[in-house]
Simulated scan of single mutants.
Amino acid sequence: MKILMCIWMVVLLLSASYNPVSAADGAEAFDIQKGEVVKIIPHSAKLQSEVEKWLAAIEGPVGSMNIEPDSGIAIKIELAPPLKINNPWLKGTVTQVVLFVSQSDTYTPKLLIFTQENNTLAMTLKYDLHTFFIRNNLYHPQLNLSMPN
């Protein structure tokens, strides 16, 4: 029950902004400590392709109940069109993802996945995010972009 409460809080926090962003507008980069959207990343074929690579790089379910870090960045991306995924961890149509990256050395990137089939999955991600963060002016050396071992 606690995990569902945490997930709902994250979704509500990411959705609560003065100007809601649709998939056509882009992705929201949310500073977890500040509690505010700090950047909108325009939706593009390149962004959609990047998320597809993330989904191909999932390593398995998150091992802990708390997936949201205390500090860092959460990036909410609505997919348009949704992506059909069929891999060992996920079979379905992904409509939205939230990428969590922390400043903590012990927290590795996590991907919260929402599907058209009403499934919500929290997955570990083994993917080099440096280029994505640099290209979108979100890179900060304090962020732990390390891949899990």
Rank of each mutant, 00 (worst) to 15 (best):
A45R: 12
V10A: 12
S22R: 03
V97A: 00
L99I: 01
G26M: 08
Y127W: 12
L112N: 00
I7K: 15
A27V: 07
W54T: 02
Q103D: 09
D105M: 04
G92F: 04
T108S: 13
I113M: 09
L4S: 06
P148I: 14
S44T: 13
I58C: 05
E78C: 04
S71L: 09
T95I: 14
A16F: 02
K53I: 03
G60R: 07
P148D: 10
E78M: 02
P61Q: 10
E36Q: 09
T106H: 05
D31N: 15
A23F: 09
H130F: 10
A23W: 15
K91Y: 02
V51W: 04
M123C: 13
E117R: 05
G63E: 07
E50F: 05
K39S: 10
N66C: 14
T124E: 06
H140C: 08
L83C: 00
P81H: 09
V62C: 10
E36H: 02
Q142R: 02
S22N: 09
M9E: 08
A24E: 13
F133E: 00
C6S: 10
V51N: 03
V101W: 14
G92I: 11
E36G: 05
L111H: 04
L83F: 10
E52G: 09
P20F: 06
F114G: 00
P81A: 04
Y139F: 14
T93Q: 07
A80T: 14
K2T: 13
N137S: 12
I75L: 09
F100H: 12
F30P: 05
L125S: 12
N87C: 07
L90R: 01
E117Y: 05
E28L: 05
S102T: 13
H43Y: 09
I77F: 06
Q116F: 11
K39W: 07
V11A: 06
F100Q: 14
V11M: 05
K34D: 06
E36R: 03
K34N: 04
M123V: 11
H130V: 12
P69C: 05
L12N: 12
K46H: 08
L90A: 03
K110M: 14
I134G: 07
G35P: 00
T108M: 09
P82S: 01
L13S: 10
T108R: 09
S15N: 02
